[in-house]
Design a protein around this nucleic acid. Structure first.
Lengths: 246, 246
DNA sequence: CGTTTAGTTGACCGTGCTCAAGGGGCGTGG
DNA sequence: CCACGCCCCTTGAGCACGGTCAACTAAACG
């Protein structure tokens, strides 16, 4: 974990993420941009950004890279309960509770901004729309969580994987990380298995089914959606739970 | 749905629920009690209190009865994503988003208080602790949702059902609805199946296993936990995600 | 060049699903 | 008062979806 300053730091995803929920004025965007640049950190892949049991005191906002929110059982079984993508705030408001009940680990190198609680609250107090946007992000996370329960509980493997891919693609689109029908996809099959409640072996076979059906191309960490409508049908995907404007 | 006034209306569960998250002063409790009694409604079992697609404008707080938060797929498959118990606020803050993305149906006759958005915001604006308690309740709902993803995705049937029962018992204890080791349990096996992602047939067999192992007694809508420690072990249950004080 | 990590494939097996039938409690109506 | 229907629970039989175990390949890395 090291401090990264100056050029190359992009706060765009954050502005885009929040703008999808509330209209963010030029001046608010500028103030937010300034706050985000105050303390920019970097973390390698495969580490816990925050861990179950930690006392939440700071807020981390992801500028680039992917992470996974997860919980593990005593015997090692792991369930990823959500992905954290660029523009997402990992833990806004979690300081209202005394302890974190889950962990977040980096799947790639991650660049993120860290903000102290006081600074964060001051930002929100000064701007109603910004505060609402952040609360909405929290509510959308809950909605995603609900949809995941449906996904894991009531969809079969092929539907489940298709649905997850649809969700990720939509979320990346919001923050401008979808190029046409392709995106970087830095997730191992083990991660996908832990996100869908499947075994790695079966996840592998399910991906092959999606490939064979001509719905996706996935290789060398790049995902291309060959037929988005078909993928949505295959996953019984309805994006309203993401509450994207427009 | 009819208006119910006067005696017999208990707001205790609500005060207890919020007191588990923040210390609620006498005067706050009194103000809340008054607000809750302004408009008390009643609904029979088996109806939607709010439905996917509705525009959220009012807040409903449950005084008595059980409900289920659920989503359905086009082909009728249903997943219950959470239970709503006495003292719970069903949809605080959901008015920040334009539409509801899930439904809530009553499992029993339900008595609830309905509060207009303005009234609700005024209450919170006047009392920081109350506002925080309500936000905490929202955050705990998210935490429960995460735990359900783990439950459905990574636990086997017996663990899954045991875990769910542990959660319900703990939540009922918080609002004073646990009598020793027993509680009213007005949930059909179909509901439990839809909550755990199992089929009704398999859920039935799993309950029988729990009974045969001497962990629970469940009949005539009453659940008794014969051996709570054993049930917790069977469900790999760790209650920290409920964030109950104490 | 050995080691590690990720992906792939085959074979076998078991948890949990489906289909089907029947029983008990309860409310309703003849 | 009994008949009927409905809802919920229960049980049996067969099967399939997805898990487990194991081996192998390919790429990445020190």
């Amino acid at each position: 974990m090291s401090i990264t300053r100056g050029i190359g730091t992009q706060t765009e995803p954050v502005i885009r993420r929040l703008s999808a929920l509330r209209s963010i004025s030029e001046s608010t965007a500028a103030a937010l941009d300034r706050a985000l640049r105050e303390r920019v950190l970097r973390m390698d892949a495969g580490q816990d950004l925050i861990a179950e049991g930690d006392r939440p005191d700071r807020i981390r906002i992801i500028l680039s890279g992917w992470l996974a929110r997860y919980k593990t059982l005593e015997d090692g079984r792991r369930q990823i309960v959500n992905f954290v993508l660029p523009g997402d705030t990992c833990d806004a408001f979690s300081y209202l509770l005394p302890r974190l009940d889950h962990s977040i680990c980096s799947l790639t190198t991650v660049i993120y901004s860290e903000i102290e609680r006081d600074r964060f609250e001051a930002l929100m107090a000064g701007d109603r729309m910004l505060a609402e946007a952040l609360w909405c992000e929290q509510l959308v996370n809950c909605a995603i969580q609900r949809e995941w329960a449906v996904n894991i509980g009531r969809r079969v493997a092929l539907e489940r994987v298709a649905h997850l891919l649809c969700e990720i693609v939509e979320r990346l689109r919001t923050v401008g990380l979808l190029n046409g029908d392709s995106c970087g996809f830095p997730v191992t099959q083990m991660d996908l298995a832990d996100a869908t409640g499947l075994s790695v072996v079966h996840l592998n076979r399910t991906l092959q089914e999606l490939r064979a059906a001509g719905l996706i191309v996935l290789r060398e960490r790049v995902l291309s959606i060959s037929d988005l409508d078909a993928l949505r049908n295959a996953g019984l995907f309805n994006p309203i739970y993401l509450h994207h404007a427009g």
